[in-house]
Amino acid sequence: MPVLPKPLRNPLVLVGSGVIVALFLVAALAPVLAPYGPQSGTLLDRFEPPGPRHWFGTDSSGFDIFSRVLYGARPAVGSGLIVLAVSTSAGTAVGLLAGYGRGAWGEVLLRITDVFLAFPGLLLAMAVVAAIQQRTLWAIVVAISLRWWAPYARIVTAQTLAIREREYVEAARSIGARHLRVLLRHVLPNAFSPVVVQATLDLGAIILTTAALSFIGFGAEPGTPDWGRMVADGRQYMRDHWWVVLFPGIAIFFAVAAFNLAGDGARDAFDPRLRGE
């Protein structure tokens, strides 16, 4: 298979990447693909078992679970990407400053990063959502991002510190390149690959964290086709209507598994030492 890049030759990574591509496609095309809207149906149609009319059955509000699982790709991918956009940019900025700037400033930034790293993610998110007093997807995104940037800052700091010492940066410096240029041209590209690996793995972790928050009672807005919320809300009907919990649960599982497989693949590609071959 000459055309495939190396990491994709691992069948599991291939499957994972395929699922991710499918996930993004579903998120984009949900209105086209879904037979029903995410909230179409009435209480009269509730708890219909899986069948030709409703492939995954209907939920406690009478909504088509198949459609909701498809639409659910949107908040899953969306909130994940927003959290990542916030945390990678904040994390990269802090990391670059901490790693590149010498002295007290770098030290302070590092300590602030350490403080946020010290919080277990779910606990901090839980406290923040409660403090904001808003149980919306936005509140969850804010709450998760508050902790999530810290590992990126760590990664970027470590990379920056390592690269800073390397000769080519020294050389670039000595020929008078300005700091910003050094940062952009030399440090950032090198920090890029571990950040991408971490981000891929994190997309899965974010989905799991929002699901756990939903379980605790801090979910997205009522009626939102959010997988975590669907499982959390559906668990009280599980004994009689298994499909209400099963399908969104499977969606979570596949999405998270895919991001993990792809993340592992990306890591193998970027860091040959860790390759399991």
Partner: peptide, 10 residues
Amino acid sequence: GQEGAVMWQQ
């Protein structure tokens, strides 16, 4: 519950 609230909303 969510079902009643969503029903009213719709």
